[in-house]
Design a protein around this nucleic acid. Structure first.
Length: 463
RNA sequence: GCUCCCUUCGUCUAGAGGCCCAGGACAUAGCCCUCUCAAGGCUGUAACACGGGUUCGAAUCCCGUAGGGAGCGCCA
């Protein structure tokens, strides 16, 4: 039997890291098992579903590289199928019309809560034969009254629910549209889903779904309820930290592989390994190894991992991402060699591509602004004197590459009897505008002789 | 309130009875390296929620307690 997993987000909120992680687990498991991964948009709540949320799901999955083998399917386009199943259940008696009004149900619920009971539908319409005039009925599933349901969960082990705890849930609204718990069951059945991997907030829904599956004469899939992701403060994920659209991470300058790597390590591990390529993740991942406890999202570790990926990635593969970030700050460049050189020079001092772009601006603009504080500290009389010598020396250099520049500067420092720092810092400020940059020889080599000398001249001109 | 789930350093985790006076990683502190900033290396601080059992022996098994979470919708 080939494995079929699915990711079934609801477009009622923006896709965030929590959703991405369950998507990742499903995707990884399918890839690992040589199975199929399906994307299905659960948009039966027409009131709250938005176009934008659908967009974020599609674009987000695309950016992350979590390609679906099938889909995206949309539940709103499957209403005919749901109607058909509903009719069959009504005919078979596994579902029935309920004519209780919302008001009556609310009143019932309030009474139960007042009596400190678990609010539940008591089955008033279970045996009703005649319609009630003026009320358009909902359809309820006739849940078994006796016995228990055991969920054989891959993460939690066996979890038992008594049927007496489960009431007859509504599977179709009074306007005829089907509800979530019912649609999932039909879809997973129709699409041949073998492994349902989802957040453990769904664990409580599972016994009902299994009962429905049984009523439909289908064996249940394997379930794996993965723990949720908490905010850095241990509280529920909220807008303030992680609950932003995943595309926010693209904007912030994260590599998709780094985000995925971070997320896969939340609730899962493989020995002491922290950094995983996509292929390594696929090879090592197993849903059986996923933890039960929720974990807190730690932005600092994400940052660290992003840099690790930046440092290990093929520079050419990073170029498109850096270009996108440069474009955001008004810099355009198609100089592949320069872009790759900048990536190699900057990646060990930037945690994100956004940061890298900001720190590298001076490579891509014609005129730089010089930070006054850096100038005051390093472009002193002594500093300028040194720069005059540096300028002459560099201008006369036969080859313009990092080793040549390095030895030239070293020779100068030695001759002056000072450390290299006395020369490098003024030089750095003059050509980059700040006191921080990659090693000065590399910086100059990448910048090119022409621009380097021009910037020196500009500094030396104002005295 | 009821049902279900969860509980190892600040955080992510290793650990499936002796290998653990608990290992790795992020963060943090110190040192080294050094042209700046980093990266890197070394060292340090830091955890088995609590209480009972079972056992020669428990982070690991059992039972309670506490704390946290989820569900109980004509939301998904």
């Amino acid at each position: 039997m080939t494995v079929v997993t699915r990711f079934a987000p609801s477009p009622t909120g923006l896709l965030h890291v929590g959703g991405v992680r369950t998507a990742l687990f499903s995707w990884l498991y399918a890839r690992r098992m040589g199975g199929k991964f399906i994307l299905r948009v659960e948009d039966t709540d027409r009131e709250r579903s938005t176009e934008e949320a659908v967009r974020v799901i599609l674009d987000g999955m695309d950016w992350l590289g979590l390609a679906a083998d099938e889909g995206p399917y949309y539940q709103t386009r499957r209403f005919d199928r749901y109607k058909e199943v509903l009719a069959g259940m009504l005919a078979a008696g596994t579902a029935y019309h309920c004519y209780c009004t919302k008001q009556e149900l609310d009143a019932l619920r309030e009474q139960q809560i007042a009596r400190k009971e678990k609010p539940r539908y008591t089955g008033i319409c279970r045996e009703r034969r005649e319609p009630r005039p003026g009320v358009s009925p909902v359809i309820r599933f006739r849940n078994p009254i006796e016995g228990a349901v055991v969920v054989h969960d891959l993460v939690h082990g066996d979890v038992t629910f008594q049927n007496t705890e489960l009431d007859d849930l509504i599977i179709a609204r009074s306007d005829g549209t089907p509800t979530y718990n019912f649609c999932v069951v039909v879809d997973d059945m129709d699409m041949g889903v073998t492994h349902v991997i989802r957040g453990d907030d769904h664990l409580n829904n599972t016994p009902r779904q299994m009962n429905m599956l049984q009523a439909l004469g289908t064996a249940p899939p394997v379930y794996a309820h993965v723990p949720m992701i908490l905010g850095p403060d241990g509280a529920k994920l909220s807008k303030r930290h992680g609950a932003v659209s995943v595309l926010q991470y693209e904007e912030e300058g994260f590599l998709p592989d780094a985000l995925l790597n971070y997320l896969v390590r939340l609730g899962w591990s493989h020995g002491d390994q922290e950094v995983f390529t996509r292929q390594e993740m696929i090879a090592a991942f197993d849903i059986h190894d996923v933890n039960k406890a929720a974990s807190a999202f730690n932005p600092e570790k994400l940052l660290w991992l992003n840099q690790q990926h930046l440092m290990r990635a093929e520079p050419a593969a990073v170029v498109p991402y850096l270009r996108a970030q440069l474009r955001r700050i008004g810099c355009e460049s198609s100089d592949q060699a320069l872009l790759e050189g900048v990536i190699v020079a900057q990646r060990e001092r930037a945690k994100t591509l956004k940061e890298m772009a900001h720190n590298s601006r001076f490579f891509f603009v014609d005129r730089i602004d010089i930070d006054p504080k850096a100038a005051a500290k390093h472009l002193t009389a002594d500093g300028r004197a040194a720069l005059t010598q540096v300028r002459a020396r560099l201008a006369a250099l036969p080859a313009w590459d990092a080793p040549s520049i390095h030895s030239a500067l070293n020779a100068l420092a030695e001759a002056a009897g000072t450390g290299l720092g006395k020369i490098a810092q003024p030089l750095r400020v003059a050509v980059t505008g700040t006191a921080v940059s990659p090693p000065i020889d590399q910086t100059l080599a990448l910048l090119g002789r022409e621009r380097a000398l021009a910037r020196l001249d500009a500094v030396l001109a104002v005295s």
